[in-house]
């Protein structure tokens, strides 16, 4: 039972203020995890509602540094879920508009903004981070950044929410973590009432995570996949449709052109997978980013980042889909033969 002895946190000591502030979470994931969080640097690119949710959760957890990155401006639509930007910030840069409230969440975290377009960012920029989280980008750009992260050994997350539907994809290369294994041991004596004790033992695991291109290349129309698609629902199909929409139209469906965009979505649906079970109704809930759904996906993504940073528990491998109708969130493993 050799447990990964990470040397880089052995010198870290939490201050009394940190111990107090993080008390309730240290009781859950332990001191070692909290120290690991303390050394983590995270990039959040895309300060839409989802970016704001992830940012909030990550800052509250007590990481070392968070970089808020966006070159877009705050629009009316952002006020459906982007609570880090004040009303007055309409028209200003989304990352910069989020700074004040982000910092107020936890003064112990180093938070800064960057407004240079992602396209202009080279591998030098990404080096400083342990985890990179990107939303609102095209598959092409996501793939480019994932490759950079591969080279640098950085953990990569692509995530998005359209209306009430959302996903994340984890590209973590080789990831090692510890998980607790529970076993039952009978502790009662022969003549007594049977009693068991649950014993937890840590176990070291190492798992390979497929790159993002595996999702781009993934064929959801394959007959072999049909049974799974039927069982888990059409969420994965919806993701494909929305990403096709984004690359074809260089934008997401807009509430301003609601009806015509729904028509466009239906068209893509029927092209991608004719006779699918994806209902018209599901296409009604894909506009802007709706706060409660963003909270769910943003909460899941932030928890995944925490798992990755603390090396505790298995991160989702690798595609997570949230179905707002049932509120079921499930994970599919893409790209593993």
């Amino acid at each position: 039972m050799d447990v990964d002895k990470d040397t880089n946190v052995s010198g870290v000591e939490l201050t009394e203020a940190e111990n107090e502030l993080y008390d309730r979470q240290i009781r859950l994931w332990g001191l070692e995890s909290q120290k690991r969080l303390r050394t983590a640097n995270i990039l959040i690119s895309g300060l839409n509602g989802l970016g704001a949710e992830i940012t909030k959760n990550i800052i509250l957890s007590g990481v070392n540094m968070v970089k808020l990155h966006d070159d877009k401006l705050i629009t009316e639509e952002d006020f459906c879920s982007q609570f880090l930007a004040a009303r007055e910030s309409l028209g200003s840069n989304r990352a910069e508009a989020s700074l004040t409230r982000a910092r107020a969440l936890n003064p112990m975290v180093d938070i800064s903004a960057d407004t240079q377009p992602l396209k202009e960012k080279s591998s030098d920029f990404f080096k400083q981070f342990n985890v990179v989280v990107i939303s609102g980008e095209s598959n092409k750009e996501l793939q480019r950044i994932d490759s950079i992260c591969q080279e640098l050994g950085i953990k990569f997350y692509a995530t998005d929410v359209w209306g009430m539907f959302g996903f994340h994809y984890a590209s973590l290369q080789k990831h090692s973590y510890v998980e607790n294994v529970f076993k039952h041991k009978c502790i009662s004596k022969p003549n007594e009432k049977v009693k068991y004790e649950t014993i937890s033992t840590p176990r070291q695991c190492e798992v390979e995570y497929p790159t993002y291109i595996n999702w781009i290349d993934f064929d959801i129309t394959a007959p072999k996949y049909a049974r799974k698609l039927k069982r888990d629902g059409p969420g994965i199909l919806l993701l494909r449709i929305l990403q096709v929409f984004r690359s074809e139209h260089k934008r997401d469906p807009s509430y301003k052109t609601r009806e015509s965009d729904i028509t466009l979505l239906k068209k893509i649906r029927d092209e991608v997978l004719p006779n699918s079970s994806l209902s018209n109704e599901a296409l009604e809930l894909l506009f802007a980013q709706i706060s409660p759904a963003v909270a769910v996906v943003g909460g899941v993504v932030a928890q995944e980042i925490i798992k990755v940073v603390t090396k505790m528990e298995a991160p989702h491998r690798n595609l997570f889909i949230f179905n707002p109708e049932t509120c079921i969130g499930y994970v599919e493993t893409i790209g593993v033969r």
Partner: peptide
Amino acid sequence: PAIATTNAITAGI
């Protein structure tokens, strides 16, 4: 014990 993420997910649902 309590963490932000679980609360966010639960409240969202």
